[in-house]
Simulated scan of single mutants.
Amino acid sequence: MYKIRVERGRTYMLRIINAALNNQLFFKIANHTMTVVSIDASYTDPYETDVIVTAPGQTVDVLIKADQPVGSYYMAARPYISVPLPTVIPFDNTTTRGIFAYEGSESNNSVMPTLPDFLDTPTAHKFYTNLTGLAGGPQWVPVPLVVDEHMFVTVGLSTEPCEEINATCPNGQRFSASMNNESFVFPQNASMLEAYCYGRVDGVYTTDFPDNPPIVFDYTNPSLSNVEPLIFAPKSTKVKKLKFNSTVEMVLQNTALQAARTIRFTSHEGL
Rank of each mutant, 00 (worst) to 15 (best):
M1Q: 14
Y2S: 11
Y12D: 06
L14R: 04
L14I: 05
I16Q: 02
I17C: 15
L25P: 00
I29S: 04
A30Q: 00
A30G: 01
M34W: 02
V36F: 03
V37D: 10
V37C: 09
S38A: 14
P46L: 07
E48H: 11
T49C: 14
G57A: 06
T59Y: 02
V62A: 03
L63H: 05
L63Q: 07
I64R: 00
A66Y: 03
Q68Y: 00
Q68H: 06
P69E: 04
G71T: 02
Y73D: 01
Y73M: 06
Y74T: 04
A76I: 02
R78Q: 01
R78I: 00
I81Q: 00
P84S: 06
L85N: 12
P90D: 02
P90H: 05
D92E: 08
D92P: 00
T96Q: 05
T96N: 02
R97C: 05
F100Y: 09
E103G: 09
S105W: 03
E106L: 13
D117P: 01
D120P: 07
D120T: 12
F127A: 06
Y128I: 11
N130Q: 08
N130H: 13
G133H: 02
L134G: 06
P138C: 10
P138N: 10
V141H: 08
E149S: 14
V153Q: 08
T154M: 10
T154W: 03
G156C: 10
S158D: 10
P161Q: 08
C162V: 12
C162I: 12
E164T: 15
E164F: 09
I165R: 09
I165F: 08
I165D: 15
A167Y: 13
T168E: 09
C169N: 10
P170F: 08
P170T: 08
N171T: 06
Q173N: 11
M179F: 11
M179P: 00
E182I: 01
S183C: 12
P187Y: 00
Q188D: 02
A195G: 10
C197R: 15
Y198F: 12
R200Y: 05
G203K: 03
N212P: 00
P214L: 11
P214G: 07
P214S: 07
F217W: 13
Y219S: 04
N221Q: 08
N221S: 12
N221H: 05
P222F: 10
S223I: 05
N226I: 08
N226S: 15
N226G: 15
E228I: 14
P229Q: 09
P234F: 08
K238C: 00
L242A: 02
E249K: 05
L252Q: 04
Q253K: 10
Q258K: 13
A260H: 04
R261D: 13
T262L: 14
R264N: 08
S267C: 04
S267H: 07
H268D: 12
E269F: 08
E269Q: 12
L271G: 01
